[in-house]
Amino acid sequence: MNVSYLYSLLAVIILGLIAYVGAAIGLESLFGIVIPYLAILAFLVGFVNKVLDWAKSPVPFRITTTCGQQKTLDWIKPSTIDNPTTTRGVIIRMLLEILLFRSLFRNTRVEFKGEKVSYKWVIWLWLFAIMFHYSFFVVVIRHLRFFVEPTPFFVNALETVDGMLQLGLPGLFISGATLLGATTLLLLRRILLPKMNYISRAADYFPLFLIIGIALTGIMMRYFTKVDVVKIKELTMGLASFHPGIPEGGVSALFYVHLFFVSLLVAYIPFSKLMHMGGIFLSPTRNLANNNRMKRHINPWNPKVKIHTYDEYEEDFRDKMKDAGIPVEKE
């Protein structure tokens, strides 16, 4: 069995310890100010560079993957979303992909049952992915509280919904629990399913462990060690307003571990598969209309190629064509 996840786990543990020890021995400014700023910088520069690099390459052909009926005869109902011919259709198709993971929802699993090969509809991957992405999204929005003053109304509203279970004190946020749950499920899937285990590499496990680390430290701070939120907000507001500083009396070392993990994740995005968050918008099989036969697509580098012309062809076969009674250009 492939145990490359152990390397990633080890890496994340060591990184966590580095931040913990670093904060304890007085490197708070490094972990609380310098590294977060560097991470944001790396993210912005890396992300923009990557997207510009993608944009630099043209889309020479319109290679839509069609997943439904084309638009042809008036009386045949076209599939306007899965096989779009208009910009509107493309936008809806993209929204369904980006917001609802439509393609993943189609997932099936092949099974050999006796003499039959069957394809069972399975939604687990889709479900875990949706849980993960949306809870992460909610968690990020909630954290705006630490960077914006006064707290925007939608953050408060979201927190009310997120905390509607009204369990414990401070009240449990559903998103935190689902984030940890979904990442754990995605991780277990990679470790336990043989095919997933086989295709997974350190680069797949690393971000998962990192996010699990983020969720765990966050949950610990909120529900168990009960860190001083006021001081943390003082630090984060300092970062957001470009007047960084370490609060008097210090913050729990656990917070620095949390912040270090977040910094690593943010900086890691542009250089890893996490760039799928940008790539999904640019995938030419999804973001183009299947209207090639109606509207010519232009390839900016359309090359001039040497073709075998009709005249050359007739030159080769003229006598045979004449004998067979096939019309020719030159008698």
Binding site: S57, I63, I199, D204, H276, W301
Partner: peptide
């Protein structure tokens, strides 16, 4: 890579989800 955006995107975005 310079001629096909598709190639760049397909090289960069796979998360090996296994679908």
């Amino acid at each position: 890579l310079e001629k096909y955006r598709s190639l760049k995107i397909f090289m960069d975005t796979c998360v090996r989800c296994g679908a």
